[in-house]
């Protein structure tokens, strides 16, 4: 009997370590559904999905970087530079494709710069990407003096569709997000590229001894991060209807939170695309739910921080307990 109990409690530990973070999200979800009127409605859920779509896309890019054991601190600040690149080209040409290509180019350049400094030259990722992010602040302020750029009246429909359009009753950003989640999940888990990225994150030195070109793959992760940031920035700018140099700064902290939640999500310490999606959902759900409960704005930040600490703590604590038993 005693033995049986023991095994059961161990299984429970395993289960909660593996799904603890997701379960935690579910509990919060149920809580809001019960206590916040209008939270659990189709309209609100669709809105929540739309709100989280940009964060999810940025976080998906960051997931590549973290999967390879790296970090990218440039995301929040660099978003604005991409916003205004997209906006400026759109205002000048009113051509969506050109503007999109411009935005993606800046994303690639950003990733190349980060990757060159971190993966190739070997600077510490935290410092180097932070510095690159700081440079982008200077650049975007230099160009705009901090002023937003409004779209022209006759702006191309495509440029608005990315952030505001719907297919049926589903917002386009939601569809785009879901496609990208599936894509990243596929790349990370089913392809050689993904396997090698995880290997590098698991043990950089052993990967090198195993013949993996560590520099090259780490460079790729930063480029992916830049490209996904560019996609999110275009979505954001399209949503706002104007290019804001300061918009997207919240991406940084929320992205870190979402991807950290992702690394603890399935108990293995590797961030996965689906984990990042759930992580981003938890973060945005808190904002959404707390707003519905009429909790004041600044208090939402406190709650968000606490939730991240709590969920990571739970996972680490359970992991430690599992080791000992």
């Amino acid at each position: 009997m005693i033995k049986g109990d023991k095994i059961q409690s161990r299984d429970w530990l395993h289960f909660s370590k593996k799904y603890g973070t997701a379960l935690f999200g579910l509990v919060v979800f149920v809580f809001f559904s019960v206590f916040a009127n209008n939270f659990f409605t189709i309209n609100n859920q669709l809105m929540l999905l739309r709100q989280m779509s940009m964060l999810t896309v940025v976080a998906l890019g960051f997931t590549f970087v973290m999967a390879a054991g790296g970090f990218d601190m440039s995301l929040g600040n660099a978003a604005g530079l991409i916003n205004i690149t997209f906006g400026a080209i759109l205002i000048a040409t009113n051509n969506f494709m050109l503007s999109l290509i411009g935005a993606l180019t800046v994303g690639v350049l950003l990733g190349l710069t980060n990757g060159l400094l971190v993966a190739i030259i070997g600077l510490p990722d935290f410092i180097a990407t932070f510095a690159v992010g700081t440079i982008t602040v200077g650049l975007k302020m230099l160009i705009t003096k901090g002023n937003p750029m409004s779209f022209p009246q006759d702006v191309s429909k495509a440029a608005l569709f990315v952030g505001q359009g719907k297919i049926g009753s589903i917002p386009f950003p939601v569809i785009l997000m879901l496609i990208l989640v599936v894509l990243v999940a596929f790349v990370l888990e089913k392809t050689r590229l993904g396997r090698r990225i995880y290997a590098i994150g698991g043990n950089k030195v052993a990967s090198q001894y195993g013949g993996i070109n560590v520099k090259k793959y780490r460079l790729y992760t930063f480029i992916f991060s830049g490209v996904f940031l560019a996609i999110a920035s275009v979505m954001l700018t399209s949503r706002l209807g104007s290019a804001q140099p300061l918009a997207g700064e919240d991406f940084m902290l929320d992205t870190i939170a979402a991807v950290f939640l992702s690394t603890t999500m399935f108990g293995e310490g590797e961030p996965k695309a689906i984990g990042t999606f759930i992580g981003a959902f938890i973060i945005c759900m808190l904002t959404n739910g707390l707003t519905m409960l009429n909790i004041e704005y600044y208090f939402q930040y406190i709650t968000k921080g606490l939730v991240v600490i709590l969920s990571v703590l739970t996972s680490v604590y359970l992991g430690g307990k599992l080791k000992k038993s």
Binding site: T191, R195, Y198, A199, G202, N203, A206, G210, E270
Partner: peptide, 30 residues
């Protein structure tokens, strides 16, 4: 330090170096 990827399964550690052998156009055959 230089050999194992600790959080990888035995199987993934075996296939690490010659991953091409288990993939088709970059897609793995687990």
């Amino acid at each position: 330090l230089q050999g194992i990827i600790p959080n990888f399964s035995v199987s993934k550690n075996v296939t690490l170096t010659y991953l091409e052998k288990w993939s088709n156009n970059g897609v793995l055959n687990s």
